[in-house]
Amino acid sequence: MLAKRIIPCLDIKNGRTVKGINFENIRDAGDPIELASFYASQGADELVFLDIIATFENRKTLANLVKKVAHEINIPFIVGGGISSIEDVSILLNAGADKISINSYAVRNPIQIEKLAGFFGSQCIVVAIDTKYIDDDWFVYLNGGRIRLPLKAFDWAKQAESAGAGEILLTSMNHDGTKKGFAMDITMQLSKNLSIPVIASGGGGCMKDFLDVFEKAEADAALAASIFHYKEIEIPALKKYLNENNVETRL
């Protein structure tokens, strides 16, 4: 049986891991390679590296980091942040990333999802959606939450799916950093209507939150950052807890 996945996310700035609350107040959280090795040994099922500045100079730093990660880590990993061309994708995949995550680039050029999927295969194209509940619905936001689009998260996810996305990484900006639980309604709406896996992100604060997002919202994977970085939840204990509650994980 396919196991539910636990995915730590490492936000990367100038080659270091950082973490903010509600996309702001960024603070240092350690060396990415060390953290990644630690998480792999702890039983993380996959890792996400998100470049949060993504300037031109940073792209090289990121590609070098990806190379090191591919060498040192024996679990799959996703790389994202500021990807804005097929060339960017190609560089990161060639450096050893298993999947790349695209956000604004996909929203602004949905046709590119199709091109990327055709070229590299759907399995390595993750479409990341940052969403916020406002005016009675979940809307898509860009640029770390600074730009609101007149586009509903659900509609965009469906569109991305039919264009060839392999997975959806859904982040609720209302929940991110709050540790009050994942956004259950929108996660469930996507999981129950998409034929590709949904990774839930934002708000996981205690083990019960993870159980709920798998059991009730039917997410395929759950992502979190600070609670893992600051060891508020240890992955082996979390996975044991999930298994004891009949959510199969890889122990």
Binding site: L2, G166, E167, I196
Partner: peptide
């Protein structure tokens, strides 16, 4: 069931 068994088959299996 395309919703229950999502494709690609991604993840850890025995």
């Amino acid at each position: 069931d395309k919703i229950k068994y999502k494709i690609p088959h991604i993840g850890w299996n025995n």
